[in-house]
Design a protein around this nucleic acid. Structure first.
Length: 559
RNA sequence: UGCCCGAUGGUGUAAUGGUAGCACGACAGCCUCUGGAGCUGUUCGUCUAGGUUCGAGUCCUAGUCGGGCAACCA
């Protein structure tokens, strides 16, 4: 049963939006925004926020803006802007003409800052970063006033204009809000609103050397865009009083900020900083490494946008900080691919089989079902001949009753082909099995036995002469611990990197697989779901990424 | 330690003072030309202590535990 995407969702934020609609708080408008900073690639945690922001707008016939919060030029880059646009679109959301940049508001923000200074609600502080910290105090001790706090309006105005003019070096002055140095909330102790950064901005170039901080910029942006519901993650909760104060001081339209818990996924990291470290350190091949929880990584791995959306619906929206098991994400892609992915046969760890009583030169075409869950997917022909490959793990010299596969004297079905019985085993000098000899029953062609004889196991295979060879990348979780970020003070999260997170094998595959084009998803029967890699595949030589393995109840009981 | 936020099975979530439900997982059985999928069933939960109430997961008080905040990051 496909989990629908159309059933209405409910959570405390949606309830609040519905309530505001009932009371006419924003004249029936619903305007949300997804405000990424272009300093890294989007990951599945962002997908949760995107589904919320765009979802709420959609459900209420409102709009959701895509707004780049580009207020810190030293960390930001167009590379990230481009990837974010691509990823949000890929996830299935559209912002229409509502694409905005904080940097487009810089002039208005500057005017706003001037107003704050004139109203004696902001002042220029000359404290060095260290002194600034020192004066702020600690949670248990109140801070003390900066000398700049008593500066005259005229002098503040003059300094601020000269800051903009480029007269001062980075760090010499900062514009601060005049709030309360004794507040128990550190963010209310005269937070910085503007700092000097002689840095090239990816959009405004060198027009500015003065940039607003998040606290000043974010509320301002929301206000200009007349956002109604400003949704963000829990760590901004302590900033909310400042958000409200600022818009109040500016005497402008005020949206309401509501916070929800960010997504945490087991066995991976969800911080742009840590991902950057993995990328730059070469621990992964790039931001789109299929082992990363980035949207481009998941996409390359083979995850569909719909499966990620359904996953986001599944985890819900709360204020509880939790750790979502990565198997829940895997469940959603398996559920979709079981319905939609064509089945094919590929042998990841080939062992040769010779059917001794099968004619030497003969090749037959046998009919195979493309998708047992979807009759409309039709059938295909696959070649069968005397020499085949089967999975090495599907043969065992000494097998117990629980082992349903091939073993000396045992009969199994070769999927869509024949019943075969193992007659002999050929070994190398060192004892490793080189090939298995079998006999087949011609009466079982297609896989059915006319005499009603039953066989316990069915295994997949590939005809040797017609087999193609492809590289297949098998993935395991990137980290071997559930919460890799939980490390001792002297530890490093990279210590728990799983050394076996990537294994590349050379597989023997049926012809249909060699013909697959990049981006195609399929199920290698009895093994898992795979996606033809969009980056490293070449015509005639596709490379496959394992999306997720099939459930293996034999492997589970075997261990 | 100061302030803020939170606490429901193994995990994620619902129940808006009235039968603690759903999904994932686990386990068992059935079915099966994928040891897949599907079907059926089982297991397991309201942090603690008081209070309000006919009735509390829900409201109140205290505590416990977990998280956040002390960038001129967002």
């Amino acid at each position: 049963m496909p989990e629908t995407e159309h059933e209405p969702l409910s959570d405390f934020i949606r309830e609040k939006v519905a309530e505001d609609l009932r009371t006419g708080k924003y004249d029936g408008r619903v305007v949300t925004r997804f405000p990424p900073e272009p300093n890294g690639y989007l990951h599945i945690g962002h997908a949760k926020a995107i589904c919320l922001d765009f979802g709420i707008a959609e459900e209420n016939k409102g709009v959701c803006h895509l707004r780049f919060d580009d207020t810190n030029p030293v960390k930001e880059d167009v590379e990230y802007v481009d990837s974010i646009i691509e990823d949000v679109h890929w996830l299935g959301f559209d912002w229409g003409e509502h694409l905005y940049y904080a940097s487009d508001y810089f002039e208005q923000m500057y005017e706003g800052a001037l107003k704050l200074i004139r109203d004696e609600k902001a002042y220029i502080c000359e404290l060095s970063p260290d002194a600034f910290k020192e004066y702020r105090g600690v949670p248990t001790r109140p801070g003390k006033a900066s000398p700049g706090r008593s500066r005259s309006i005229e002098e503040n105005l003059d300094l601020f204009q000269r800051m903009r003019g480029g007269e001062f070096k980075d760090g010499t002055y900062v514009l601060r809000a005049r709030l309360d140095m004794e507040s128990p909330n550190l963010h209310m102790r005269d937070p910085a609103l503007y700092r000097i950064k002689h840095a090239h901005h990816h959009r405004t170039g060198d027009a500015w050397c003065l940039y607003p901080t998040y606290d000043f910029a974010h509320g301002f942006e929301d206000s200009i865009e007349r956002v109604t519901h400003s949704l963000c993650t829990l760590e901004f909760e302590v900033h909310r009083p400042l958000y409200d104060w600022l818009l109040n001081a500016l005497e402008v339209y005020r949206p309401e900020q509501t916070e929800f818990a960010r997504l945490n996924l087991s066995y991976t990291v969800m911080s742009k900083r840590k991902m950057l470290e993995l990328v730059e350190g070469g621990y992964v091949s790039g931001w789109d490494d299929p082992r990363l929880p980035t949207l481009c990584g998941l996409r390359r791995r083979g995850y569909t946008a719909a499966s990620i959306r359904r996953f986001c619906r599944g985890v819900g929206i709360t204020k509880v900080e939790s750790l979502t098991d990565i198997t829940l994400l895997e469940h959603h892609i398996k559920e979709e691919l079981n319905r939609t992915a064509p089945r094919v046969m590929g042998v990841l760890d080939p062992l040769k089989v010779v059917i001794e009583n099968y004619p030497e030169e003969q090749v037959e075409e046998l009919e195979a079902v493309n998708n047992p869950e979807d009759a409309s997917a039709g059938t295909r022909q696959i070649p069968f001949s005397r020499e085949l490959y089967i999975e090495r793990e599907d043969f065992r010299e000494d097998a117990n009753r629980k082992f349903y596969r091939l073993a000396p004297g045992r009969e199994v079905r070769l999927r869509y082909a024949y019943f075969v019985t193992c007659t002999d085993v050929v070994k190398d000098a060192d004892g490793t099995i080189r090939e298995v000899r079998c006999s087949y029953d011609p009466a079982t062609r297609g896989g059915d036995s006319p005499d009603g004889r039953r066989v316990k196991g069915t295994i997949h295979w590939v005809s040797a002469a017609q087999a193609g060879e492809v590289d297949v990348r098998l993935y395991d979780r990137l980290f071997s611990t559930e919460r890799p970020e939980d490390v001792e003070a002297d530890g490093d999260f990279k210590d728990s990197l799983n050394p076996d997170s990537l294994k590349i094998v050379r597989a023997k595959v049926e012809p249909a697989i060699v013909a697959m084009t990049p981006g195609t998803r399929c199920q290698f029967e009895r093994k898992g779901y795979f996606c033809c890699d969009t980056k490293d595949s070449t015509p005639g030589q596709p490379v496959f990424n394992q999306i997720v393995p099939l459930r293996d109840s034999w492997g589970k009981q075997a261990q």
